[in-house]
Simulated assay, not measured.
Amino acid sequence: MKIGYIRVSTQEQNTIRQEVLMKSLGVDEIYIDRMSGKNANRPELQKMMEYVRKGDTVIVESISRFARNTRDLLELVEQLTAKGVEFVSRKEAIDTTTPTGKFMLTVFGAVAELEREYILQRQREGIAIAKEQGKYKGRKPIEAPEFEQTIAKWKSGAITAAEAMRTLHMTKTTFYRKVKRLR
């Protein structure tokens, strides 16, 4: 069976280009994740890894869609190999059934990881420059006009902390950080 894996980095990004490729390759089953590839903790990837069995072939558009660091890539491919599953990356023309394909997989995996590191470095540099120019000030603080009244109710025992957080639309971390600053 041919199994396709598709990943885009955000919910807003479009998967159509990858889906068209999978259909043209005669893929039987497709798994789609809409989240960062920085690690292998992706729900559809995990479902696919559990689903595949001996004789299947996992097809991806490119290595960067499957894994963003060499270690994850090699571990995932090793898990597939242990199950008797082939791995094919169309963009890089990698087929893990050959020694050359395995070698190229390692090389391209390292390149994908390097590319991600460059992206993160450029992002950090851009933020630093924007801060120097006064254009980047970070996230705006959460302002809740009813904060003090809600905290007073919570401290008096009229409402629970969970109710106070819901009322103020705050996460647990934000709530307790702001409470701590009041002291």
Rank of each mutant, 00 (worst) to 15 (best):
A110F: 13
A161C: 01
V179H: 08
A128D: 14
V20F: 00
K180Y: 11
R90F: 04
A40N: 14
Y31W: 11
R68L: 01
V179Q: 13
I151H: 01
Q79R: 14
V8L: 04
A112S: 12
T70C: 11
L45D: 08
R183Y: 05
I119W: 05
L105V: 04
L25V: 13
P43Q: 04
D72R: 02
S156Y: 12
A130V: 02
L105D: 02
I94H: 08
P141W: 00
I3H: 04
I151V: 12
T97S: 13
I127S: 03
G37V: 02
A40R: 13
F66I: 03
L105K: 01
K102E: 09
R166D: 12
Y176M: 06
R122D: 03
I94T: 12
L45Y: 06
G138M: 07
Y136S: 10
K54M: 10
P99D: 09
V8M: 08
I59K: 09
K91E: 12
T106S: 15
K135I: 10
G26C: 00
G126K: 08
Q133I: 07
T81M: 08
S36T: 13
Q121A: 15
G126P: 11
Q121E: 15
K47I: 05
A40C: 13
R181D: 12
L21N: 12
T15C: 09
L168W: 02
K155P: 02
E19N: 14
V111H: 11
G109I: 00
